[in-house]
Design a protein around this nucleic acid. Structure first.
Lengths: 189, 189
DNA sequence: CTGTAACGAGACACCCTGTCTTGTAAAGTC
DNA sequence: GACTTTACAAGACAGGGTGTCTCGTTACAG
């Protein structure tokens, strides 16, 4: 039902090298340092090979982020919803601190303002992350929130991103505990 | 005590034309459309005139945003702190919706990742906006918050930015009312 | 009138973009 | 083994932005 198309098959080695090179370039040099030409050169790949499979650098980085995100899901229910939330927040905040993640996602967001296709795919990625947090929150109950759960998600992830964006405050254990206090206060008394 | 330096004085007309052109370019074409060359051409100005006073496009746009921000302060205390907060949030959300503001600030943030000087100045701008909200919040009392006021500021502005960034939800009256509920819940019972 | 510095205009080398071309490599088909 | 088809690495190419530099001009002070 999925007959192989004729011709030389896509090189998975080239795909890996491109994704890895894109992330590596972002690590040392920042998002602005990531260009299609630089990716191709660093990956030891022809530029056309990149353009054949991805329309923009954003598409490359988004696919790389997808792999990272897929490896960071919600924790299995432990029976204590608040503990689950703490675990998820700690993992998320740690992930956000890994060198290029915040830089990449912010750059993608910026690029997305001028690229509707990229914007749509980025929204999909963000929606997955939001759904993950919503699920963990609703382990405390689907009802009985003072504001809708999606708004709670926006408050929590928003505070995280806002700090990462402007680097005016830490995204760490203190924030985790404060978020837990806020979430508790948003449960009906 | 401030003797005029010799030579031709700086042209205020050129300054204005450059700032206005930068914003106009962002309105139609997005942040990516704003380049030093485009600014200079649109402003009818030599490119060197831009480089003489601003090191990067980011510096130009940040100065333009400073003017916008300066025109949007906190409302005078009405006696009802909650009403004050509502007024401030409504004005802020309306401002964030004005065509280029979100685009510019997001683009600046992205540029700032690769430009420490710009980052520092942007942090200053953000700090002003954060201080404004903190002041309005503390009209309800400087003490008695379940989490520190700066964290409340991050939650509120964070949610706003997070929605503006990813455009997954509206930044409008509903959010205003939900934020008011959250703020009320964060006052000690 | 002279000195000084900003101004508009544009030349210059450099880099990235996105497309195109060339020759080669890897798969299925006959 | 020849043929077809597609991916591959390498690089040429025009177009556009960068940041610097050089013109000749303009505005203000002494």
């Amino acid at each position: 039902m999925n007959p192989k198309p004729p011709g030389r098959p896509r090189s998975d080695a080239a795909r890996r090298a491109i994704l890895d090179a894109a992330v590596a370039l972002c690590v040392d040099g920042g998002y602005a340092n990531v260009t299609i030409k630089a990716i191709a050169d660093a990956a030891g790949v022809g530029r056309q090979t990149v353009y054949r499979w991805w329309p923009t650098r954003g598409a490359v980085l988004l696919e790389a982020m997808g792999e990272v995100g897929a490896a960071h899901g919600a924790p299995p229910p432990s029976g204590d919803p608040v503990a689950d939330l703490r675990v998820f927040l700690e993992a998320t905040f740690r992930l956000a601190h890994k060198a290029p993640v915040a830089d990449i996602l912010l750059g993608l967001t910026s690029d997305a303002f001028a690229d509707e296709q990229l914007a749509a795919r980025l929204r999909g990625y963000i929606a997955e992350r939001r759904a993950l947090l919503a699920e963990v929150l609703e382990r405390q109950g689907a009802d009985g929130w003072r504001v809708p759960v999606p708004t709670v998600v926006d408050l929590v992830f928003g505070a995280m991103w806002y700090r990462l964006m402007n680097q005016h405050g830490p995204v760490g254990p203190e924030l985790t505990e404060q978020v837990l206090v806020v979430v508790a206060a948003l449960r009906q008394a």
